[in-house]
Amino acid sequence: MLAGQSQKELFVNEAFALLDALVHPVVESEAASPPARPRDGECWIVSSQAAGEWAAKSGQVAYFETGQWAFAQPVEGLAVYDRAARQFAFFDGAWLRAPQVSEPAGGSTVDVEARDAIGKIVTALRTSGILPQV
């Protein structure tokens, strides 16, 4: 802010809204158009098929604040938690998510200890949000 700057509170409030959306971001999901009744503070990833009010905003994080949508262009390395998918999404030029991984089953030789260890690793990755919940 500058001394004598008009409407300083608007710039400060806009900065706080952006911080709120991006410091520990949680998105509802990924969508092509805004939800019918968004709540203040709601964030979404704008999908590649963006339309309507979100047209030309593909890949950006849309956040709803004080009755209007604002958008933030993600930078490489940004991670957001996707509530609907129950996992993290990472931005690396595009939004990336870990694929669903099946726990080991079957095989000609069953190694109980190895299967147990791999199962615990898969559980830990799901719990941490790296892999989606089943």
Rank of each mutant, 00 (worst) to 15 (best):
55 A>T: 10
35 P>Q: 10
52 G>E: 06
99 P>K: 14
91 F>T: 05
88 F>R: 06
94 A>G: 11
39 R>K: 13
90 F>W: 15
40 D>G: 10
42 E>I: 01
76 E>D: 15
78 L>G: 00
92 D>K: 12
117 A>K: 15
28 E>L: 10
49 Q>L: 10
60 Q>R: 13
105 A>D: 10
28 E>S: 07
99 P>T: 14
111 D>G: 07
117 A>T: 13
120 K>I: 04
69 W>I: 02
95 W>E: 04
128 S>M: 09
43 C>H: 01
28 E>V: 07
28 E>Q: 12
49 Q>W: 10
72 A>I: 02
91 F>A: 03
107 G>I: 04
122 V>W: 03
30 E>C: 09
81 Y>N: 05
58 S>R: 07
32 A>T: 09
29 S>M: 08
66 T>G: 04
66 T>W: 07
85 A>N: 09
34 P>D: 06
84 A>W: 08
104 P>S: 10
86 R>M: 12
60 Q>A: 09
64 F>E: 01
40 D>S: 10
54 W>F: 12
96 L>F: 12
48 S>Y: 12
44 W>K: 03
114 A>Y: 09
42 E>Q: 13
125 L>D: 01
73 Q>D: 11
83 R>L: 14
42 E>F: 01
80 V>Q: 01
55 A>Y: 10
77 G>E: 07
118 I>Q: 07
63 Y>P: 02
48 S>Q: 12
41 G>N: 03
77 G>Y: 05
72 A>P: 00
118 I>V: 15
113 E>A: 15
113 E>S: 14
88 F>P: 01
102 S>H: 08
49 Q>P: 01
53 E>P: 04
127 T>S: 13
33 S>V: 10
87 Q>K: 09
83 R>H: 09
46 V>S: 01
122 V>Y: 00
54 W>H: 03
43 C>T: 03
103 E>K: 15
35 P>D: 07
85 A>G: 09
103 E>W: 05
114 A>L: 15
121 I>N: 06
46 V>A: 00
93 G>L: 08
83 R>E: 04
36 A>D: 14
78 L>E: 05
97 R>F: 07
49 Q>N: 15
86 R>Q: 15
41 G>Q: 05
118 I>P: 01
88 F>H: 09
96 L>A: 14
95 W>S: 02
71 F>H: 00
36 A>C: 10
43 C>S: 05
90 F>L: 15
81 Y>Q: 01
83 R>N: 08
75 V>G: 10
64 F>R: 00
96 L>Q: 15
108 S>L: 12
100 Q>D: 12
102 S>R: 09
50 A>P: 02
55 A>I: 09
31 A>I: 05
107 G>K: 06
50 A>Q: 03
61 V>T: 02
84 A>D: 14
27 V>Q: 00
87 Q>N: 14
60 Q>P: 01
47 S>V: 05
113 E>W: 08
90 F>C: 11
59 G>S: 07
60 Q>V: 06
96 L>G: 12
33 S>C: 11
57 K>P: 02
39 R>W: 05
40 D>I: 05
92 D>A: 14
125 L>S: 04
104 P>T: 03
